[in-house]
Design a protein around this nucleic acid. Structure first.
Length: 329
DNA sequence: AACACGTGGAT
DNA sequence: TATCCAAGTGT
């Protein structure tokens, strides 16, 4: 049997109760269309077996990484490629091997160690999550999705990833890779919708293998398949373990219909100015005079707005005498 | 729902 | 060179 567009459409249009269910109910069993059930079972073995043979040996996948290692990696991997994360992850885990170690540091040290990974608010949030874990969870990364979701910087995806990868429990994990794999293999679309939909969450739950161990491997395997084979730009279907069952392939690989993803500009934005300001502050262990920061951008209004934003975000601490530094508290 | 939020490699 | 894209979250 094959995964067809009709199959998924049937599965997706289920009871209204399922649609009302909160997103964190990632492992709860809905009534699933029997055809989709069969589709799921036909996909599990080839994808999980492919993963066993082709998975990358990434440090956060080793047992010694622990739940903290998984959490650190997930923060760093939010919108940042694996290759850029690897060296920073290794340094981070050596310096702060447990949440309490990071919690004892100044937040600015987390921002400094974050280096050029981008989106430095993630470093601040990871520091905040470490403090919460040290204070509220006895220093252990919590294993419940709801508890994880309450931590700063942990959203639906990251909470699911920790539950599944760190604790080996059955939970739907929907990241951009998984969404693309499901869109193609099951729904027959080249790309998933721009924002995650209730239908996608329902589908991810319906496709989840029954037992914890297989479900956990399936989550990692579908992500890896999306990252290595079923890529956004030029999928390598010749290397795909489920190409013969792929709804998108069977439909003749039609071009994407919906609206194109809004491409975000960067040059000339506040984001670029913030990046330059923070680069100066990361490089200095001493407070930096305003005059040094003024060098990074010619336009004074935008420059001031960017600096104010960094202060408001807690990424920069203003001092007396017009000097600035990464936050000590 | 749409937008802000960094950075750099690939095409 | 310009655009796309990368294991998202918060507002």
């Amino acid at each position: 049997m094959t995964a067809t567009t009709e199959t998924s459409a049937a599965a997706v249009g289920q009871s209204p109760a399922a649609a009302d269910r909160p997103a964190e109910a990632g492992a709860e069993a809905d009534a699933v269309d029997p055809a989709l059930r069969r589709t799921a079972r036909a996909l599990h073995a080839p994808v999980v077996d492919w993963f066993a043979a082709h998975a990358r040996d990434l440090p956060w996948r080793r047992p010694e990484a622990g739940a903290w290692g998984v959490m650190v990696s997930e923060f760093m991997l939010q919108q940042t490629p694996v290759n850029r994360v690897l060296p920073v992850y290794e340094e981070w885990m050596e310096r702060w091997p447990r949440p309490a170690d990071l919690a004892a540091e100044a937040p600015g040290e987390a921002v400094r160690a974050w280096g050029r990974l981008g989106y430095p608010r993630r470093a601040l949030r990871l520091h905040g999550a470490a403090k919460a874990i040290a204070e509220r969870h006895g220093g252990e990364v919590p294993g419940e999705h709801a508890q994880l979701l309450a931590l700063p910087g942990v959203g639906e995806y990251t909470a699911a990833a920790v539950v599944s990868f760190a604790y080996g429990r059955r939970h739907a994990v929907l990241d951009t890779n998984v969404r693309r794999v499901f869109a193609r293999a099951v729904t027959g679309q080249q790309y998933p919708p721009n924002a995650t939909t209730a239908a996608e969450r329902r589908l991810a739950r319906a496709l989840l293998p029954e037992d914890d161990g297989t479900a956990s491997r399936w989550a990692a395997a579908t992500m890896e398949l999306g990252a290595l084979v079923c890529t956004a730009r030029s999928p390598q279907c010749g290397r795909c373990p489920i190409a013969a069952q792929c709804a998108w392939q069977l439909a003749g690989a039609p071009e994407h219909q919906g609206p194109a993803r809004r491409t975000q500009s960067y040059a000339g934005t506040d984001r670029q100015v913030r990046g330059r300001l923070l680069a100066v502050l990361r490089a200095s262990k001493e407070p930096v005079p305003q005059s040094d920061l003024d060098q990074v951008w010619h336009e004074p209004v935008q420059r001031a707005r960017a600096l104010d934003g960094l202060v408001a975000d807690g990424l920069v601490e203003p001092l007396d005498g017009g000097r600035f530094r990464l936050p000590l508290t």
